[in-house]
Design a protein around this nucleic acid. Sequence first.
DNA 1: CGACTGTTTGAAGACGATCAACCCCTGTGG
DNA 2: CCACAGGGGTTGATCGTCTTCAAACAGTCG
Lengths: 256, 256
Amino acid sequence: MSQLHTADTRDPWQAPPVDDGDAERFCSTCVFGRVCMPQGFSKDALNRLHCLIEHVGPFQAGQTIFRINDPFSAVFSVRAGLVKTFVIDDKGREQVLGFYTPGELIGLDAVYPSRYPCNAVALDTTLLCRFSFGAMANLAQELPGLQQTLFQLMSKDISAALWGKGDYSAEEKFAGFLLDWGRRLARRGFSARNFNLPMARTDIASFLSLAPETVSRVIRKLSDDGVARFDRREVELLKPEALRKLASAIPNLGLD
Amino acid sequence: MSQLHTADTRDPWQAPPVDDGDAERFCSTCVFGRVCMPQGFSKDALNRLHCLIEHVGPFQAGQTIFRINDPFSAVFSVRAGLVKTFVIDDKGREQVLGFYTPGELIGLDAVYPSRYPCNAVALDTTLLCRFSFGAMANLAQELPGLQQTLFQLMSKDISAALWGKGDYSAEEKFAGFLLDWGRRLARRGFSARNFNLPMARTDIASFLSLAPETVSRVIRKLSDDGVARFDRREVELLKPEALRKLASAIPNLGLD
DNA sequence: CGACTGTTTGAAGACGATCAACCCCTGTGG
DNA sequence: CCACAGGGGTTGATCGTCTTCAAACAGTCG
């Protein structure tokens, strides 16, 4: 399967049908296209927001998008592909902070320090939209809906960052991760039961603060229990209820 | 010692001396007083921001400020005292998400879901400033500096929420916690070496995802090693360098 | 003084990390 | 076509850290 499949087909989250032809000019998976438009932006507003968008990429798997301490000037919305953010601790070990799939926004945590607080690399062939944050803030000064959207997106990121705080068993963490990933895919119209985990096991392990071996063992256990089927990086959730029960220990901090 | 000592004395973080008498009308520890004023707000702007402020409290130790799922309408700035936020997992165990000391802002994570995603209780006699978020967003529409401040505060909260993500030893976590706490007190002009940990050990343990017994043992070890001295809830850091070395494993995600 | 909560200490056990080896798949070059 | 190398993933055995359970202890407030 093409790794750019999300770019090939019509994105199911294309903005709700609008007669206005201008809406088409937005990249279909852009967060602002999704979040702002239902709030009834004027044609003029759409145009001005559109002027801020700069398409960048493609980035090949492994390519760096920004580095920690790079001066901040823009946020990125994933159009296609997959991005991970991470930091390196003093012992050289990598700590994955998040994965970003099409429609999600990267870099809001860089606003305050005016520097990116982490590294971002593509894990797959990736296309991005780049938004100059300064220009967007200026525009938000005139468009209350855009300001509100930015507040909401940042607020959501706070909750997302809090996700998984607490000491949970390896199984609980991984179950939560599977459900969260499925939910995010479902937002774009894909199946939440049958999907792909495009990132390396090592990255999942780092994200969940587990050893890769532990992730492997959890996967085996879930397979043995008939809760899910794993084939390479393909996953099928056979008993989502069982997963939900496992993950119920992890509070959902207002994530959707 | 009075538990309201921060309210008794002139707050060292009172805004930098301004000839304008109006500045005095801000509560001294308010984040906006601190953050906005250096950016040169007009008298009119200050007045209008001031109109939004509503003083609430005092809350006695143990009193609830808001509950999870309460509809969101306002954020709170701590004027005096101490607040913790937490959630309860399905097994009834409490997970502390954060502590808020004077000058810090609570509730920005509630903007998106329009509900508070956690509970907030006073851990000590507490005074708050209440800001209607809607009114503040409206005002931010006219005051670019206020909008920018809100973006920065939210961005900072993302980084703060990410703090401690990763698997660190109990000693590293606790060392990081001590330094972080000291740094936050130092911002208000207090000593970063000699201070109070006003929250219960249980709450510290929960915040760090450790058992209370483990916190107790770490404290004993730090005492034995001569790194810090503990007397009830009073702390004196004897070898801050040793603590910094311990905590260096934990990346500082752009926090100050 | 006695009940209560918060804290400390000790001993046993569990979970996940670590280390080491092996396997599987892919791509490359002979 | 096969040999080989390399990365990612899995499996097994051992070890360490933190949790758990239990009990004693310390301050606080009635």
